[in-house]
Amino acid sequence: MTRFIIALLSLWALPLYADISVDKAWIRAAPPNAPAMAAFMTLQNNGEQDVKLLSAHVAGFGRVELHRTMDVDGMMKMVKQDFMPVPANGALELKPGSWHIMLIQPEKVPQVNEKIELTLTFDDDSSTKVSVTVKEAPIPQHMQP
């Protein structure tokens, strides 16, 4: 009976968890001596609650930080973010010159077509694993399936 109640409770609790899907993810290819790289993607929130991306973890890098490039009077500023907001029934687009996940101090700079696993952790304690390919540029819109 207790088990049944727990199962029921967890079923009831499910919709509270983030319903996040990750789309159009890519890591920008970088020179072999690049001290920092960036990952981009669209975070889609299919749930009814606003969600915050709190952190990203990637093996093989010294540090991973959430950043946003902002144009302040013509100066492009790298602004470190405590979180990235993903609105309910909405999306946040990570792209060059804007929101990005900064991958710092690579043990070895990954090559084009290499796949890197990212673990994204959100403010409701949920986390998502995504496999992201290293590319020179995002796939153009018309070439996407």
Partner: peptide, 13 residues
């Protein structure tokens, strides 16, 4: 600069 995470790679590309 080469430690540039976003702007320089974008521009050089």
């Amino acid at each position: 600069y080469t430690h540039c995470p976003d702007v320089c790679p974008t521009e050089l590309y």
